[in-house]
Amino acid sequence: MAQANQSRFLTVVYRSYVTIFFLYLVAPLLAAGVFAFNDSLFPALPWQGFTLDWFFNDTEPKLGMFHDERLLRGLKNSVYIGVIVSALAVIAGTCNAFLFERKQFPFKNALYILMVVPLVIPGVILGISILVFASMIANGIDAATGVNVKWLRPGIPLIVLGQFSFLTTITSLVIAARLQKFDIALEEAALNLGASRSRVLMTVTLPFLFPALFSAFVVSFLVSFENFNTTLMLVGSDAPLTITMYDRVVKVGSTPVLNAVSVFLMIASGSLALLSVLIQRNKD
């Protein structure tokens, strides 16, 4: 009896711990979210009433996020970078998945480790190393031919390269995990029935991989969108949203328009992530 009581007590303690943990998890997100709707110039108590001004108002001092030129430009840059880098990373990741799942070649294990390594290099280091390397090449070209290669200087192309360098590892792992589950007999059957190799790829293998390709794309897009460390080192005059927001926090201090951007980001990335989970689940 005492034993049973003790174990019930432990269960209650355990449950409360897990509950407190989840409160800790959502507390800052709630705090960032709630004050987007407070009709005040500062993201702080007291509560001055509900408003959507921080989203839609078009005049200072309460300029809403959808009328704030710089934030909108940042958002546009982020989406632009995210789409390009995710598409590239999914293509490269698919090649890598086929390479490591289907092919045999010397030093395969060592090269596999090399493929995983970008995940354990700090983002700041990836950023500075690509900055340094690109500048060395650009300076070399400049000295030899007198041509200034613009895209090797800080800016959107370098951000894309910097993010691509580690996103490709993520997409490769996601796609390879799915390819591993593929029954190769399906391809053989299609080949025996007279389909060409490229046709088998288009009608059998790639459709099977589609959920993984899609979720790899979504994951890359989200990671690219929220990336800060690598991007910070490579940014030029066209800053993506996270950098614009950081500038605002450091220079202006916190204003509720940043809370509004936070709400927008939480809703957008939350629904994208959910969508990818649902698609993944439906196909399994």
Partner: peptide, 25 residues
């Protein structure tokens, strides 16, 4: 899933949330 959702919220938003919670006001 609840565990994963904050994963997709930018570091910046999370740090900003802590600032709103913890600063003097």
């Amino acid at each position: 899933l609840l565990c994963l959702i904050p994963l997709w919220v930018s570091d910046l938003v999370r740090a900003f949330g802590w600032i709103v919670l913890l600063r003097e006001t």
